[in-house]
Design a binder for these strands. Sequence first.
DNA 1: GAATAAATTTAGAATGGTTCTAAAAATGAC
DNA 2: GTCATTTTTAGAACCATTCTAAATTTATTC
Lengths: 125, 125
Amino acid sequence: MVLKMTKQRQLIYNIVNSTPDHLKVEEIFNEVKKNNSTMVFATVYNSLNYLVENGYIRRIRIPGLPDHFDRNIQPHDHLLCEKCGKLIDVPSQEEKLNFFDGKGNYYHKKQVLYYGVCYLCQKKL
Amino acid sequence: MVLKMTKQRQLIYNIVNSTPDHLKVEEIFNEVKKNNSTMVFATVYNSLNYLVENGYIRRIRIPGLPDHFDRNIQPHDHLLCEKCGKLIDVPSQEEKLNFFDGKGNYYHKKQVLYYGVCYLCQKKL
DNA sequence: GAATAAATTTAGAATGGTTCTAAAAATGAC
DNA sequence: GTCATTTTTAGAACCATTCTAAATTTATTC
């Protein structure tokens, strides 16, 4: 399978790749518009799905929040700041699992999410 | 504050409390209808929110899935079976946190979610 | 126990994030 | 260059959940 970098996908990729932040679709779309692109919402979603599926970027899914997209595809966990809502990268405790428990359940992935307050919001307290 | 157990809330509570499974609103609503209740969807949501807020039951939020409700309010983690979609209780690694990292970020909660295949689905393989 | 106030339920509309559909446009293969 | 495939567009649809306003139930006060 050939990876096709269309104009739209390239722009989306550049936007995500231009910041260590974890962008929401809404934020990405705002950047898209700054580039005078006529791109439409569905294309942002399509492109993000394509980029995630092909390993260019990573999708961060947090319950209750819209998806965030991260240029950092290395394994790492996240701290969700409960003041500002931002996601902070933290070193990974995520392990590749491959074991059965006593009941016969099989585990292959562990996902960790921290809740707290980021250092920027700490300063404001 | 007095905890008011209306007929509707009591029925919802009984349904959630009648099984170790983790029920979705849809499943709860189906049970409600079996009881000839005229209860409406919004009331199921209202009641569940009330029961969660007052510590009767626990809400399990998994990204990409509708909320699940669990009668087990003791701390524990979950394994999401990728075959059947069920949630399995697993012993907790969830710790009450209270620390700062080197950058000044504050951590107060850690949430763990496992992905894998439950023992029932294992049997079918 | 009737009158009033407060809380809850109902019914259905609204919301927000995301996906779907069908047509148009762009790209690729022969 | 023609035909087939893929991608983009535009907007509707979807799903889980919340909101709104009216109706009903429950609680409080006299």
